[in-house]
Design a protein around this nucleic acid. Structure first.
Lengths: 103, 103
DNA sequence: TGATAATATGTCAAATGTGACATATGTTTG
DNA sequence: CAAACATATGTCACATTTGACATATTATCA
């Protein structure tokens, strides 16, 4: 993991903060966060490709615009579950999800 | 989705029950459950390959034996998050996780 | 420009997931 | 066989995630 990546994570609000705290993240934690960010980004991509607004997607997944925004910005308060269920609700195939994960 | 699959899901405790309730499951819900079951099964596979007991895995992921059991039996009370974090804690690569998902 | 639509951020009560415990049910081995 | 070990199931207090709301910020375009 390099500075580039750390900066990206910090920007996203994953309070890494000081180098010490940052080093406190285990490899699993980092992988897990990266996974979520990848899928979040993919969700946004899929939604925009479908020319849907966040409000429209919210209706589809029975949630709210604000939560969709959090989903797409990789807010720490959202679970992998919700990201993946949203992707599935948009018709994303397992294969596509797998592709995103290993990309 | 066929009877075979429905039976498997019912066995796992995903209270589907009556045909009506069963039909109430959307495609996304079914995909989501299948995803969890696949990853659960994979977790068990990885753990046993590593010759670890549930108690040992529990220690690694800072959880309890009972939760590991639930993880592996695909109990509805466990999240995708925990399954995936457990896999990552066992050193499973993103590529392997992706493979499991699209299998 | 400013009005309108889209997205982002903060907050919170309610819903869902969690570790831990007790205990039941296998499974192995002496 | 029975003791020891491993896994499964039920329960619950506590923690995290959730949808919803208000409101702020950022596009879009007439």
């Amino acid at each position: 993991m390099n500075k580039e990546k750390q900066k990206k994570l910090e920007e996203k609000g994953w309070k890494i903060g000081t180098p010490k705290e940052f080093l406190g993240l285990t490899n699993e934690e980092v992988s897990y966060i990266e996974l979520k960010l990848k899928l979040s980004a993919n969700l946004k991509k899929v939604r925009t490709e479908r020319k849907l607004t966040q409000v429209e997607l919210a209706k589809i997944i029975k949630s709210s615009q604000s939560r969709v925004a959090k989903l797409e910005t990789g807010d720490p308060s959202v679970s992998l579950d919700l990201i993946i269920r949203s992707l599935l609700a948009l018709g994303t195939s397992k294969k596509d999800i797998a592709r995103t994960i290993s990309s």
